[in-house]
Design a protein around this nucleic acid. Structure first.
Lengths: 145, 145
DNA sequence: TGCAGAAGCCTGCATATGCAGATATCGTCC
DNA sequence: GGACGATATCTGCATATGCAGGCTTCTGCA
């Protein structure tokens, strides 16, 4: 019988973390010529889709701690790709927006993103990629917390 | 037709990174009472399975940069859970081993790991969990590089 | 033997991640 | 109007992650 010491062989965390590292590497390398990490690219995409979002709401939608997001924004603000101005109605809230430079950088970086996405699709196959995406979506939905 | 601006909606990186954050959080919280992160727990498990492993080989098996692994070992060495001694035959190599304290810590932490694993299995269901694990394994295999 | 290239590991740099706790603001209840 | 709890964000701390570049050691070939 399988002993308890073999248990970590079925560890979901080990797998998803490995996959995250590997896949992040692929995207990071394609995005590097555009001076963006995959994290930063994702933030810009989110902000383009939801201009004026607050940090807390954005953090929740990205399944990320608000403090992490707050700090991840720092390099983008410093480079002038994102601005954060106080909400008129609620002094606690910082409303995030893409600057024109941020929008332009995102446009250019899209080519790198597509290249990375193609690498994944080529390696896994289109169907397997879709299946993986769907499985991850289901997991995220069920683990929402 | 779907415009290019919607493309990131099908981004595999965003999904796997979100899932990694969420799942890591679950494991980290269960392992925290044992003073281990999920990364550290994983390292101890690997070293128990492959005593005397070198950093490079271990890094490759964990799909992790060798420099990252090197630094991740630091807290474990400092706490006396892991030792690294020079290889007799090759002065470049550091052979990693679990100390008795490391082994004992791992034993105790196994309960936390099981609790986290149970949370995943309960939320996703056993079949879905197996399917997700299998999909991640396939992806890691195809993306090996 | 000696040297050139490879291999293994490290440091420096920058970002990524989350928890605990602090601060400021808002809303509400009295 | 003021106190109190809730909310939004930030700081301090520690670990996690990978790239560029450097040092030491090994290996193979001349």
């Amino acid at each position: 019988m399988a002993s308890a010491s073999l248990a970590p062989n079925v560890c979901t965390a080990a797998r998803v973390r490995k996959a995250s590292r590997r896949i992040s590497q692929i995207y990071d390398r394609e995005l590097a010529p555009h001076d963006l990490t995959v994290t930063q690219f994702g933030l810009l995409v989110q902000l383009r889709a939801a201009p004026g979002a607050a940090i807390g709401a954005l953090a929740e939608s990205m399944v990320m701690d608000a403090t992490t997001l707050s700090r991840n924004l720092r390099p983008l603000e410093r480079r002038g790709l994102v601005t954060a101005e106080a909400d008129k109605d609620d002094g606690r809230v910082r409303k995030l927006k893409l600057t024109p430079a941020g929008r332009a950088t995102l446009e250019r970086a899209m080519a790198g993103w597509r290249a990375a996405q193609d690498q994944i699709a080529t390696a896994l196959g289109v169907d397997e990629t879709k299946a993986l995406n769907a499985a991850l979506d289901r997991a995220l939905d069920r683990l929402a917390g």
